[in-house]
Design a protein around this nucleic acid. Structure first.
Lengths: 145, 145
DNA sequence: AGCTAAATTGGAATTATTCTAATTCCTGAA
DNA sequence: TTCAGGAATTAGAATAATTCCAATTTAGCT
């Protein structure tokens, strides 16, 4: 049973890939689907497990390939926290991350426009920032412990 | 010829370690010294090379151990940019980092107090941030290319 | 000086990720 | 519709950064 995307996310998916001349394969759709389906900032490993439930033959290399492709198409974001395995996130709005050092859980943190523009203004003259990463770590919700 | 710290940084070093009941060994002093001596955000590998020039017998494990200790004492900061090797920085003031994707160089970026407090205010109710990481990547100074 | 815990050492182990070469799959031109 | 050629996937090997481990050395007390 291949993973089924909703028709709206399938459109997003198809056009993002076609725009880059890439093929919307079932593996890519599945990887995208599992990331959209459970927005818990899964690692490549988590994603591999979930994808295998839908497409049992899928290899690790394919999961990594698909993730790279999806990131390249702007469909998902990579979230790197310290040295821990990379996590993936379908939230494309500008936002920060908070990691609870006790539970390891990662939460999205909204960035309001005012703060966002002040942050962007930190970049010195002559530098051009394409990417910004903001993350916090500390103790999270009491329910995490 | 063991690395010699200036007397003021030697004081900082000694008291930071003593405060935690740790010993100010020559390897630790040397690792701290090379990080202070060339503030170019070196990797563990870079640090290893530099330390070996002063204390030839030093092992990789020791460099990692020392770095962990120094970070734990608050003498240096770890800088993680994406998946690249961890870098180390003796600048303890609140600051962000900018990585030039062409040259790989990392620059410190000051954060003014106003922006800093707005960033801290992003952390939701009930969460307690101990750490904040802000980094940019993009094209840096023309001289880098 | 001698004891004890802390630190260092070299090398093996681990872990996430990337690479490689072979195979399979799509797509579009004939 | 077939088939050629590029794109994607696959399994497994390779890599790179970091951590672990057991043995040895060192430093700071008594």
């Amino acid at each position: 049973m291949p993973y089924s995307l909703t028709s709206s996310s399938k459109d997003t998916f198809n056009s993002a890939l076609r725009e880059k001349g890439l093929r919307p394969t079932k593996q890519r759709a599945c990887v995208y689907g599992v990331i959209l389906g459970k927005r818990d900032h899964p690692t490549a490993d988590d994603i591999y497990d979930r994808v295998k439930r839908h497409l049992p033959g899928t290899s690790f290399a394919t999961v990594y390939n698909c993730l790279e492709t999806l990131v390249g198409c702007g469909l998902v974001r990579q979230v790197n926290m310290d040295r821990s395995p990379t996590r993936y996130c379908p939230n494309l709005t500008p936002h920060a991350h908070f990691r609870c050092t006790q539970s390891g859980k990662i939460y999205d943190v909204e960035i309001d426009n005012n703060t966002l523009s002040l942050i962007q203004a930190l970049v010195p003259e002559g530098f051009e920032a394409e990417n910004l990463d903001l993350s916090f770590s500390g103790t999270g919700k009491p329910s995490d412990n």
